Amino acid sequence: MEKNAKSIVEMARGAILERINYEMARVMDNILDANTKPTAKRKLTVTLTFTPDDERATIAVNVVAKTTLAPTNPVVTSLYIAGEDGTGEVQAVEMVPQIPGQTSLDGGEQEAPAALKIIKFA
Rank of each mutant, 00 (worst) to 15 (best):
V75F: 01
V75H: 03
V76W: 00
V76T: 09
V76H: 01
T77R: 06
T77K: 09
T77H: 02
T77P: 00
S78K: 11
L79M: 10
Y80H: 12
I81D: 10
I81H: 10
I81F: 04
I81C: 09
I81R: 12
I81T: 08
A82V: 02
A82Q: 11
A82C: 04
G83N: 06
G83A: 12
E84G: 14
D85S: 12
G86Y: 04
T87I: 00
T87R: 15
T87H: 09
T87Q: 14
T87Y: 06
E89M: 08
E89Q: 14
V90M: 11
V90I: 14
V90C: 12
Q91D: 06
A92Q: 07
A92L: 15
V93R: 07
V93Y: 00
V93G: 00
V93K: 08
E94Y: 07
E94M: 12
M95S: 04
M95T: 02
M95E: 06
M95F: 02
P97Q: 12
P97A: 14
P97S: 13
Q98K: 10
Q98N: 13
Q98R: 14
I99M: 13
G101C: 05
Q102P: 00
Q102H: 07
Q102I: 05
T103K: 12
S104Y: 08
S104D: 15
D106M: 07
D106E: 13
G107T: 06
G107Y: 03
G108M: 11
G108Q: 13
G108R: 15
E109T: 15
E109R: 13
E111P: 05
E111C: 01
P113V: 01
